[in-house]
Simulated scan of single mutants.
Amino acid sequence: MSSATLAGCGALLLWAFLALLARMAAGLPPLELTALGFAVGGALALAVVAARGRLALLRQGPLAWAHGVGGLFGYHALYFLALALAPAVEANLLNYLWPLLIVLLSAPLLGLHLGARRLVGVALGFSGCVLLVGAGASFPPGATPGFAAAIGCALVWAVYSVTSKRMAAVPTEALAGFCLATALLAGVAHLLFETTILPDGRQWIAVLLLGAGPLGAAFFLWDAGMKRGDPRLLGTLAYAVPVASTLLLVVAGEGVLSWRAAVAAVLVAGGGMLAATARS
Rank of each mutant, 00 (worst) to 15 (best):
A244W: 04
F219L: 09
L208Q: 00
L234V: 06
A217Y: 05
V243F: 15
L267E: 00
V266S: 10
A264S: 13
V250E: 09
L234T: 10
A261L: 10
V251C: 05
D230H: 07
L233Y: 00
Y239T: 10
L257I: 03
V250A: 12
V241N: 13
L234H: 11
A224F: 05
G253C: 07
Y239P: 06
D230S: 05
L267W: 08
L267C: 02
S258K: 08
L221M: 15
A217I: 05
L257M: 12
I205P: 00
K227I: 08
V266K: 08
V263R: 03
L209Y: 00
L249F: 07
T236G: 09
S245V: 13
T246R: 08
A212S: 02
W259K: 05
V251H: 05
L267N: 02
S245T: 14
V243P: 06
L237I: 03
D223L: 03
L237A: 01
G235R: 11
T246M: 14
G253H: 09
T236Y: 12
F219V: 06
R232H: 05
A264L: 07
A264V: 07
V241K: 09
Y239S: 14
V243C: 07
V250H: 12
A217L: 15
V243G: 12
Q203F: 02
S245Q: 07
K227C: 01
L248Y: 08
L208A: 00
M226R: 09
G225Q: 08
L257C: 12
L267F: 04
G255D: 02
A264H: 14
W204D: 00
Y239E: 14
P231E: 09
Q203S: 11
P231D: 11
A244V: 14
V263L: 15
P242R: 07
L210A: 00
L257F: 08
L234K: 10
M226T: 05
L234I: 11
A206V: 02
W204C: 00
G211H: 02
L208E: 00
G211C: 04
A217Q: 02
D223R: 12
S258W: 02
G213D: 00
F220G: 13
A252P: 14
Y239Q: 11
A212C: 05
T246N: 10
V256G: 15
A224Q: 14
W259G: 04
A262D: 08
L215P: 06
S245L: 10
G253R: 12
L249Q: 14
R260P: 14
Y239R: 09
A244T: 09
V256P: 14
L210M: 03
Y239H: 15
Y239D: 08
G235L: 03
A224T: 10
V256I: 06
A224E: 14
L221D: 12
L208R: 00
L233I: 01
P242M: 06
W222Q: 06
V256N: 11
L237N: 01
R260L: 10
V266M: 07
V266Q: 05
K227P: 07
A240Y: 13
R228T: 14
L233P: 00
K227G: 06
S258Q: 01
A238S: 15
P214Y: 01
W222I: 01
F220R: 10
V207I: 15
V241Q: 11
G225D: 12
G253A: 06
L221W: 15
A261P: 15
S258L: 02
A264G: 13
L215I: 07
A261I: 12
